[in-house]
């Protein structure tokens, strides 16, 4: 197992390198000049050229790439062109809102989607099943921002129960932190609940037809025990895979939700950096997302050995 983990971790290095080359080239080929943006609307050519030199953007691309790569190997992701702060610092400050939102969303999703999917499978063909699947289709069809605005209108503007926007750090109080995350995590979880409930239903349905379920029932076990101990557990591998991937997608894909609820997370940082052509920030954030994706995939693979003892690496 340990050697497997080591092999997988080593395998991430070429993946990350490829991502680094790709993102570096993509940014340089995209139209837009950070120097012109920094200089402002009324700067002349000489001023823009001066800034370009200061940022090192006048050097040949291979030189820029090697400088960036060299610095990165020393743990230096560079300085934001705009904020004049270390990119590492910027990312660290934005990590908490994104992780908080993602974790809360995934907890909410799992708590709702797995029981709903299991119930739908257990009551296959019933009104309950159709209702859950109907909700699932609705959840897929509604864009997150629409759900967000509807929730805000009802709970923040009409009822005044929850704040409209913003984020409070957990260190400043759990209550305020949670209150500000309730609406965004509900808005964001709808699509994942829809997705994972469907996935759970399919997996559990497959398992419910297996011989060992019939055996368990024949042994006189309660339906709850049959469902939870035999059906859901054996259906868990695909469900956990989807939950893991959903989490990875969440971390990199909460842009719209962060924007709607004004949460200062990594998603907003990425959008701001892209619009401003802040190359060092975009490069570092995308590398971070890639690394998280690879890491979560690894964790999913490892979790298989726990869920299914037959799987060995």
């Amino acid at each position: 197992m340990l050697s497997y983990l080591l092999r997988r971790l080593i395998a991430t290095i070429p993946v990350m390198l490829l991502v680094a080359v790709f993102v570096f080239m993509l940014l340089r080929l995209t139209p837009g000049d950070p120097a012109a943006i920094i200089a402002g609307d009324y700067a002349n050519d000489a001023q823009i050229a001066e800034i370009r030199t200061k940022l090192g953007l006048d050097k040949p691309l291979p030189v820029q790439f090697m400088v960036w790569l060299g610095n990165m190997f020393q743990g230096d992701f560079g300085e934001s062109f705009f904020y004049k702060k270390q990119v590492g610092e910027l990312i660290a400050a934005r990590l908490e809102p994104t992780l908080s939102l993602s974790l809360l969303t995934i907890i909410l999703t799992v708590c709702i989607a797995v029981p709903l999917g299991t119930l739908a499978a257990y009551r296959q063909g019933s009104w309950l099943d159709r209702g859950i699947m109907g909700f699932s289709v609705l959840g897929f069809s509604l864009p997150v921002f629409v759900i967000g605005y509807m929730l805000i209108y009802l709970f923040s503007i009409k009822l005044g129960w929850l704040p409209v926007q913003g984020y409070q750090r957990i260190s400043d109080g759990v209550g305020g932190w949670l209150l500000r995350l309730i609406l965004p995590s509900i808005a964001l979880s709808v699509i994942f609940v829809a997705f994972i409930a469907r996935m759970t239903r399919t997996s559990v349905l497959e398992v419910l037809g297996e011989d060992y379920i019939r055996t368990a029932r024949a042994k006189g076990q309660t339906e709850t025990r049959v469902l939870m101990r035999h059906a859901v557990r054996n259906a868990a591998v695909p469900i956990v895979t989807v939950i893991g991937l959903s989490f990875a997608i969440l971390i990199g894909g909460v842009v719209v939700t962060e924007s709607v609820f004004n949460l200062p997370g990594l998603g907003l940082l990425t959008v701001e950096a892209v619009l401003a052509r802040d190359f060092p920030t975009i490069q570092a954030v995308i590398l971070l997302f890639s690394f998280i994706y690879v890491l979560i995939n690894l964790l999913i693979d490892v979790s298989y050995t726990v869920l299914d003892p037959r799987i060995r690496y």
Partner: peptide, 14 residues
């Protein structure tokens, strides 16, 4: 960034 949200927050007194 989202001006609609800014208006919502203004209306809510935030």
């Amino acid at each position: 960034r989202d001006q609609q949200q800014a208006v919502n927050a203004l209306k809510a007194g935030e």
